[in-house]
Design a protein around this nucleic acid. Structure first.
Length: 325
DNA sequence: TGCCAGGCCCTCTTTAGGGCCTT
């Protein structure tokens, strides 16, 4: 259950009150930060620290996440329809519980993009329609064809309990670029670190638990169009899983360029770190770790949208769908 | 030191090249 203070959404800000978007966003994010400090993040990294343990049958077993919200609670839900609540209650259900209902997935994928565009055009209650998720991935390299995802983190900007999701991913191969993100081969090539094929059903269910009924998910990343999104699609493709059609994507890189232009500045220094320094955002955690970069990008997105006087409608206008070649 | 992938953008020019950005 989400706390009352977390129930409001940036998506509920009227279009005519653009400057308030950042304020509400800031409040929301600060709430997120406080929550994160209380370990309400939904993490799937290590068996002991992050609430997963490897059962003898090598399937993930159910165990409360270490959090104030989930403390002293027991797993009581068993019906598939309660999966969302199970996540929000700070539980990590058994992997079997997360088996994706194929019929349900099929129903989701019947939603046509044109329908989304039509609703956006009509601006039908965008606040109740769109879930904004900032995300980042760490990989073994730059080539989506040759390399693999080894860490993924996301943050639902609506806030509330379990508004963040973070996990290492077992690539089942050598990690050659540990000097970049400090994620080593030994850290991820472990039986208790989920492989992508294990993770995708969990990720789908988690996102669905954050999604408004009949709504859409707006994924935000820096250089999303050329890196994060193609990588994500490639991993889904390797696992023979289709990305839901109600997922849209926003790349903050062109937004940063647009901001530079709007200020009459030469379009340069639009990397995540350069933007962080430009906005004087303190570095929290390690750069090039997924969750640190997600939190940084959440703040940068807030500043970018403020500078560009952009509301949710504007973000949606810049969203794209990715068709894998 | 440069390349490694690939899409976008800018520049000097109109097709091509180089830089940026992600790990």
């Amino acid at each position: 259950m989400r706390t009352a203070s977390m129930c409001f959404s940036i998506l509920q800000v009227p279009r005519c009150r653009i400057p308030t978007l950042a304020n509400v966003w800031r409040e929301s994010f600060h709430s997120l930060s406080r929550n994160d400090g209380n370990s309400t993040s939904f993490k799937l990294i290590g068996p002991k620290i992050y609430g997963l343990e490897r059962a003898q049958d090598k399937k993930w077993s159910r165990r409360p996440v270490s959090s104030n919200a989930g403390k002293n609670r027991t797993f009581q839900h068993s019906k598939p329809s309660n999966i969302g609540n199970e996540i929000l209650d700070g539980m990590v259900p058994n992997i079997a519980t997360f088996n994706v209902n194929k019929n349900e997935t099929s129903q989701f994928q019947k939603i046509q993009y044109s329908d989304i565009q039509q609703k956006i055009a009509e601006n039908k209650d965008l606040a109740g329609l769109v879930t904004v998720i900032v995300f980042d991935i760490e990989t073994t390299g730059l080539s989506r064809e040759k390399e693999r995802i080894i860490e993924i983190a996301l943050q639902d900007l609506q806030g509330g309990e379990n508004s963040t999701f973070q996990t290492l991913v077992n690539p089942q191969r050598y990690v050659p670029n540990s000097h970049i993100h400090h994620i080593t081969t030994r850290m991820v090539n472990r039986p208790d670190v989920p492989r992508m094929e294990d993770l995708i059903p969990v990720l789908l269910q988690y996102v669905r638990s954050r999604q408004q009924p009949g709504g859409y998910v707006l994924w935000v990343a820096h250089n999303a169009r050329c890196f994060d999104v193609p990588f994500l699609f490639k991993e889904f493709s390797r696992c023979s899983t289709e990305v839901p059609l109600d997922w849209l994507f926003v790349d903050t890189l062109p937004l940063a360029r647009e901001m530079m232009k709007s200020k009459g500045l030469k379009v340069s220094g639009v990397s995540l770190q350069a933007l962080r320094e430009s906005y004087k955002i303190p570095l929290v955690g390690s750069a090039h770790r997924a969750m640190s970069d997600v939190k940084m990008l959440s703040l940068i997105l807030q500043r970018l949208t403020f500078d560009l006087k952009m509301n949710l409608s504007g973000l949606l206008e810049r969203s794209f769908r990715y068709d894998q070649p």
